[in-house]
Structures are given as C-alpha cells and as structure tokens.
Design a protein around this nucleic acid. Structure first.
Lengths: 139, 139
DNA sequence: GTATATAGTTAGCTAGGCTAACTAATGTAA
DNA sequence: TTACATTAGTTAGCCTAGCTAACTATATAC
C-alpha cells in the first residue's frame, strides 16, 4: 500500500469515531456537528448569506436552508436583509454568541485529549496537509 | 482559535469534497466509498466476520449487513462458514480480488493529485497524527 | 423589455449510518 | 442437565446529513 493510500485510509477510519464523540459533546446544547460547523463559521468569520455558507461548507443550498432553519428555531442565529432583496444574511443572536463561546470552552479539553501525545509542530503540519488537500481537490 | 480547534476544523472541512470526489472515482465500479472501505479491508487483512468488520470500521452490525449484502449482490465478495455455526466470514471473490487490484490502480493518481505538493515526510506525519487520534478517541 | 442569472425554498430522494427487538447457536453455572 | 446469559447475524424502522429537480422572487445584461 502506498503512503498516499495509507493516509486516506487513516483519514476515513478516524471520521466516524470522531464525529460520534463530537456529537456526544454537543448533545447538551441540542446540536449536531453539522449545525455546530455553521455556528463556528459565523463566529469566526461573521455573518454569511446562505450561498456563502453552502460554498464554504461544500454543500448545496437546500442543505443550508435546513441547517439554518434549525438554528433559528433554537434561537442561536437570526437572519437579516442582505445586499439586495433576494439575499438573506445569517448572524449569531446575542444568545448564540454566548453559547458558541461556552461550547468552544466545553470542547477544548475533548480536542486536547484527542490530540494527546502529538507535538504542536506535528499538529500544524497535519493541519497544513489537510488544507493543501482541500485546495488541490477543489482545483 | 487554538491549533487543536484549527486542526479539527480543517479535518471536517476536507471530508465532503474528498468523499464526493472519491465517489466519482468509484462510480464506474458501482461502488460508494463505504463499500470500497470494506473491500479494501478484506484485501489488506483477509477474510473477516461481520462483527470484525463492524469493529474495524466503528459501525454497528446492521450497517455491516447492508454493506456486505450489497457487495455479495455485485459479486465482489462471498460468505463462508466461520469458526462455529453462528459466525460467517466475508472474503473477496476471485472477481472481487481482480477488481480491487484494478480500483487501487485507478485511484492512485487521484490520491497523488490530492496530495500534490506535500512531502512524503509530511504525509507520514499527518498519517501518524490521524492514527494517534483514533487511538486516543477509542480509549 | 425580454432573456438570463442569482438567492432562497420546497418536495422528495439517497447514503450511511443508528436502535430495538428478534432468531439461532454457544457458554456458563446450579 | 437444565436454565440463563452471551454472541453472531438479521429485520424493521428510524435519523443525520446530505442530494437533485423544480419552483418563486429579484436582479442583471443585451
């Protein structure tokens, strides 16, 4: 087996245990990992339109509609008028802002334990490898 | 954002584009990436029982039943008696053996392009990081 | 002003899992 | 040896997290 195959093998092998554990961590907040990904995006990079979110997450618009509507229902985000009458911008509510802060703190030890025994340098290298693959795959 | 959060952020961001592209590559063989994962396991590590496959892939037994039945339907794998009358072992058919070989060769350039510009050393580091996380997460 | 493109929605589908409850076979302990 | 518990696999039905096709409303281009 080539080292490339080995890498992607490991990549995929990690996915389900990781997502399952992450969902356990998020359960107290009534969130699934996909919804959390939206909240994190809004926290890190400010308000986004539905199309922006779709592009960033590499999913389709109807999937965004569902995700955002669920987050609106929970009171974590709100929508407002965009740059024209078609566009809607999604942003965190005051409650959502606080909650994201709290969740980040709650997740922190989970992430640290998951990466226990890995040097900061190797984490950075691995992050860069993943980022590079994203770039290569999306042209 | 901590480097741990950054890492898992990137990890998740890569997932969908990667799986989508992989599924495109596998389409000529009527396979989805999850079914391919089973074939690769059987190729790399020989025949496995349903429970073995479930444990290795971190999924539940009923999910394995579905995956394997589909692969049997396609003629890529066969089942045989296991170590007692309860157990069934899944192994590649002759056709399946050939096909896996062919698919591996077909996927090779895709993996190489995805990792273009990444040094062999960094790929190995990233692979080890992913393996370590798997270990940490599963206790 | 008409054709085309863009933002978001709705309906209904799929992959890829899950749990609960079951059967059949095997182990264990009184 | 009988009775209970465990294990391997299956079935039915559910869920997350996506998808496409077809739609409405608005905006842009020619």
């Amino acid at each position: 087996m080539t080292i490339e195959q080995e890498f992607f093998n490991q990549y995929r092998l990690m996915y389900r245990p990781f997502i399952n554990q992450l969902n356990v961590q998020l359960e107290p907040y009534q969130l699934y990992s996909s919804q959390w990904a939206v909240l994190r995006l809004l926290k890190d990079k400010g308000p986004h339109s539905f199309v922006d979110i779709a592009n960033f997450m590499s999913i389709e618009k109807p999937s965004v509609t569902k995700l955002v509507h669920k987050l609106v229902e929970l009171g974590y985000v709100e929508t407002m008028a965009g740059k024209d009458k078609r566009e809607k911008l999604v942003h965190l509510s005051t409650y959502g802002e606080e909650l994201v802060q709290e969740i980040k703190a709650h997740l922190s030890p989970f992430f640290e334990e998951a990466l226990a025994g890995v040097s900061k340098q190797d984490i950075e290298i691995a992050t860069q490898v993943l980022a590079r693959i994203c770039m290569n795959i999306n042209q």
